[in-house]
Amino acid sequence: MHIMEGFLDTPWWQLWFAVSIPAILYGIYKMNKLVKEKREILPLLAVAGAFIFVLSSLKLPSINGSCSHPTGTGIAAIIFGPAISAVLGTIVLLYQALFLAHGGLTTLGANVFSMGIIGPLVAYLIYKAGMKANLNFYAVVFLATAFGDWATYLITSAELALAYPAGDVLTLGGFLSSFEKFALIFAVTQAPLAIIEGAVSALLFKYVVNVKSDILVEMKVIEASVVRKLRGIPA
């Protein structure tokens, strides 16, 4: 989903920075506050960040003969919310921009917006809605993280289509025509990878629930009654 260095012209790269920077700053503020109040969440924060590191480094082959990588941001979004996920996503994107020439510094704002903000936001909203509807916990985690991953790539397609509308002038038709072309690459390549990401995320959550469910309950990520049910203990 990385838009490569230099591939967003003025005013687009500035625009995405203008949108992303407030979200990152708010995320840093929230993260500091959370760590100050509950120091015991630090390891969980590290786990969520590390998961993004691992998943976004794996370029996987997809069914259409292209490669792309999962984002891994869904776990952070579910546990800590989209703002803190934006901070974690930025760290990973910065590493890749500086050391791998993957993405770039001028396009960092746009990449943070898609992978750090909208993807996690979608995952977070689906998770909340799914838990409210009393669906199976792991199924909800799967749906939330898979659609969060997929949304990231749809936003990337939209960002590129805005900067490169067909016919060179930004009209709705030009935008849609370009969006279709970019989405055909990104959204199709990403669909199977999103399914894998959702499955692996659900599995990781199983282990978090096993070893550290008390923190999840305390942070209101999950209710104590759900934890009991997952462990097969009659309430």
């Binding site: 989903m1 292209s66 509308p165």
Partner: peptide, 17 residues
């Protein structure tokens, strides 16, 4: 199938547009 990066393919579309 080449299994190239989707990011690179997007660059191709940009060139095309």
């Amino acid at each position: 199938a080449e299994y190239g990066g989707a990011d690179g393919e997007a660059e191709g579309v940009i060139n095309e547009i």
